[in-house]
Amino acid sequence: MNDMIVQNLLSPAVLFFVLGVIAALFKSDLKFSNGFSEGLSIYLLIAIGMKGGIELSKYSIEAVFAPIVGALFLGIVIPFITLIVMKFIKMDLKNSVGLAATYGSISIVTYGAAISFLNNTGTSYEGFMNAIVVLMESPAILVSLLVLKIMENKRDVLMVPSQRLGFVPSYSNLIDKSILKETIFGKSILLLVGSLLIGVILGEQALPKVQPLFIDLYSSVLVLFLLNMGLVAGQRLPEVKKHGVKLIIFGILAPLVFGSLGVLVGSVVGLSLGGVTLMGVLAGSASYIAAPAALKTSVPDASPSIYLGLSLGVTFPFNLLIGIPVFHELAKFIS
């Protein structure tokens, strides 16, 4: 267990994120051009979607229908819970949306650590959970961006005449076609969901074409992306001081609450002990790849030092040390 924790905390991706933060704090001249930074985000969104789609194509819809419904439920509910908590601690809208997307989405590295934990304990799990991983990355991002667009348009509410009440507000323009179009067809969601569908349609026949770039080089490109995100996070660290203690408490309690909800959902949809554990781990984790890649292009005003700093600095190590075994024990209790 200790070896697994050290291996994940000392992974190249995490260490390069720390290097980026250090470079920013000491005002290094290291920087990424806007075009290159954007290119890294686009690459990661396509790679994540393609890998999940290819994996999902291996299973029949009957085998994965209930777990997919459970995953989508978690991806929709968790962002709303996060937004409510953020409103309570008086976080601004865009950083609230950033945290909602981050905590509603999942951490692939934490999932990998959970797989190692299950293998070490001799616990089996459903193979299609690898596809569920990617399915849980997109809904929270979509929901969070949609909420942002709705809230930003709230100021444009029209007053319409009413026979009994005079003029009353009309909310019909809050969720109109333009908002849905802007959210669904924004580059982040379009690339993530579109790549997933392409992977499902083409299946393993797409591997010879996409594997050299989008699978074999994925880990290396991720290092560059997190180095850049570390630079951005380090530059905005002072923003964390406004909500420091409250955010740390949230970063510790959120995985326990959301992970417990994930264990419950996994049990309801009929997963095995290992599958229930993994559903809890996914729900209790926080993204530092897909969500930041989407937020960087769609919500540039959200501070990476808040959503990345919290997910990487608090929730990620907490899950490796405490979360994974807790979710496993809870899964055994419920099962």
Rank of each mutant, 00 (worst) to 15 (best):
residue 154 K to Y: 09
residue 263 V to D: 01
residue 66 A to L: 13
residue 121 T to N: 15
residue 187 K to T: 15
residue 128 F to H: 10
residue 198 I to E: 04
residue 107 S to N: 05
residue 187 K to Q: 15
residue 205 Q to G: 09
residue 2 N to V: 14
residue 245 V to G: 13
residue 308 L to W: 00
residue 114 A to W: 00
residue 82 T to W: 00
residue 293 A to W: 09
residue 310 L to Y: 01
residue 305 S to D: 05
residue 289 I to Q: 05
residue 130 N to I: 13
residue 306 I to A: 06
residue 14 V to N: 04
residue 309 G to Q: 06
residue 70 G to Q: 04
residue 306 I to S: 01
residue 213 L to M: 13
residue 85 V to L: 07
residue 44 L to N: 15
residue 308 L to A: 09
residue 269 V to P: 02
residue 129 M to Q: 05
residue 322 I to L: 10
residue 299 V to C: 04
residue 194 G to V: 06
residue 7 Q to D: 05
residue 199 G to I: 07
residue 209 K to R: 15
residue 325 P to W: 06
residue 70 G to M: 01
residue 85 V to W: 08
residue 310 L to S: 01
residue 195 S to V: 03
residue 127 G to A: 12
residue 214 F to G: 01
residue 167 F to A: 15
residue 280 G to N: 08
residue 181 K to C: 10
residue 317 P to F: 08
residue 284 G to T: 05
residue 164 R to M: 11
residue 110 T to S: 01
residue 103 Y to N: 01
residue 131 A to E: 00
residue 201 I to C: 07
residue 159 M to D: 07
residue 317 P to H: 10
residue 208 P to G: 13
residue 192 L to E: 13
residue 158 L to A: 15
residue 202 L to W: 13
residue 320 L to G: 00
residue 48 I to D: 11
residue 113 A to Q: 01
residue 224 L to Y: 03
residue 56 L to A: 12
residue 220 S to Q: 13
residue 256 L to S: 10
residue 183 T to L: 11
residue 38 E to L: 11
residue 125 Y to C: 09
residue 244 G to W: 14
residue 174 L to D: 02
residue 190 L to V: 04
residue 60 S to Q: 10
residue 51 K to H: 08
residue 157 V to F: 02
residue 203 G to C: 02
residue 332 K to Q: 13
residue 273 L to V: 06
residue 57 S to V: 00
residue 232 V to W: 08
residue 121 T to P: 07
residue 105 S to T: 09
residue 42 I to W: 10
residue 168 V to M: 11
residue 173 N to Y: 13
residue 285 S to P: 00
residue 328 H to V: 03
residue 313 G to A: 04
residue 260 S to T: 12
residue 212 P to A: 09
residue 126 E to F: 08
residue 29 D to Y: 10
residue 224 L to P: 03
residue 164 R to E: 11
residue 256 L to M: 15
residue 253 L to I: 09
residue 141 I to N: 04
residue 40 L to Q: 02
residue 303 S to M: 13
residue 292 P to Y: 02
residue 301 D to H: 08
residue 98 G to N: 10
residue 129 M to H: 04
residue 48 I to T: 12
residue 19 L to S: 10
residue 120 N to M: 15
